[in-house]
Simulated scan of single mutants.
Amino acid sequence: MTNFPIFSGQFTLRQRHQLPDQAGIYFVLDEREQLLYIGQAKNLRDRWAGSTHHRYKQFARKGLDKIILRYILTSVSELDKWFFRTCYAKLPQTTPKIFAKQGFWALFRVNLDG
Rank of each mutant, 00 (worst) to 15 (best):
M1Y: 02
M1W: 02
T2M: 11
F4V: 06
F7E: 06
S8R: 01
Q10C: 02
T12N: 13
T12L: 08
H17I: 08
H17A: 12
L19H: 05
L19C: 01
Y26R: 09
F27L: 03
D30Y: 03
R32W: 03
L35P: 08
L36K: 03
G39R: 12
Q40R: 12
D46V: 00
R47S: 07
W48P: 00
A49R: 10
S51H: 12
T52S: 15
H53Q: 10
H54R: 10
H54T: 07
R55D: 12
R61F: 07
R61C: 08
G63N: 10
I68A: 01
I68R: 13
Y71R: 08
L73I: 14
S75A: 10
S77W: 09
E78D: 14
D80N: 08
K81V: 05
W82T: 13
F83Q: 14
F83C: 08
R85W: 02
R85N: 10
C87R: 11
L91F: 09
L91W: 06
Q93V: 09
Q93G: 03
T94N: 08
T95V: 15
I98Q: 11
F99M: 04
A100M: 01
K101A: 02
W105P: 01
L107H: 12
L107R: 11
F108T: 09
V110N: 11
N111E: 13
